[in-house]
Amino acid sequence: MFKGRTLMAVAVVFGIWYVLAFLFKTPILPYPHTVFSTLPLSMERGLGNHFGVSGYRILLSLSWALITAVPLGLYLGRRKRIDELVSPMIYLIYPIPKIVFLPLILLLFGLGDLSKIFIIFIIVFFQILVTTRDASKGIDEEQILSVLSLGARPKQIFLHTIFPTCLPKILTSLRVSIGTSIAVLFFVESFATENGLGFFILDAWSTLDYLSMYTGIMGMGILGVVLYEGVDRIERRYCRWMFST
């Protein structure tokens, strides 16, 4: 799973962490090895469970966003008139911080998981939608004509041309969305919940248990790495041509 370059990146991050911890010499910034030594204790306090809950929330919201935004984006990109109608609505809603709808979302979906997943979903939905639509819009018409000239029907044009052309950009938007969704995750797990990495970090912070706090932060980092690595694997498998030289 981890290649040499990934290990090197980890070494650099920990190196910087060591230097900063040495320079500041404060309990708020402990040395990495002290944080690692706290890991078994944090696991006993349910860090693994919190990691699982956060992973579930992120995966579900990203899946919802992909399932809805990708087909819609592909469709809008190929239908100029409908795109001209829908785009102003997208541009109106996209820049509004969706967090402002939190009271409404809580009212509609309650205090449970659904409201948390929904708020992450609605934020990343627009990122994926706009990128996919632009990718679909920018498809070289000659490619479509070349497949049409072989007798392709609309479904075959979609399968052989539109979707494969847009896939690398969809995956890029997914990468951006992973970063966004983890940032939003921390926020949504700061209220009305007693599980998730965001809750774990805030709980440790409020009791001045900085070592546990850092284990939670590391958990978020690992969650990101796992998701990014997953996307990279999908890309290497389904966009093999991009890596051929």
Partner: peptide, 17 residues
């Protein structure tokens, strides 16, 4: 379109993937 008519486009029209 007819199967008996084949078109080769200027930029080849190959699918990169």
């Amino acid at each position: 379109h007819r199967r008996e008519i084949a078109l080769v486009l200027q930029h080849y029209g190959l699918l990169p993937w």
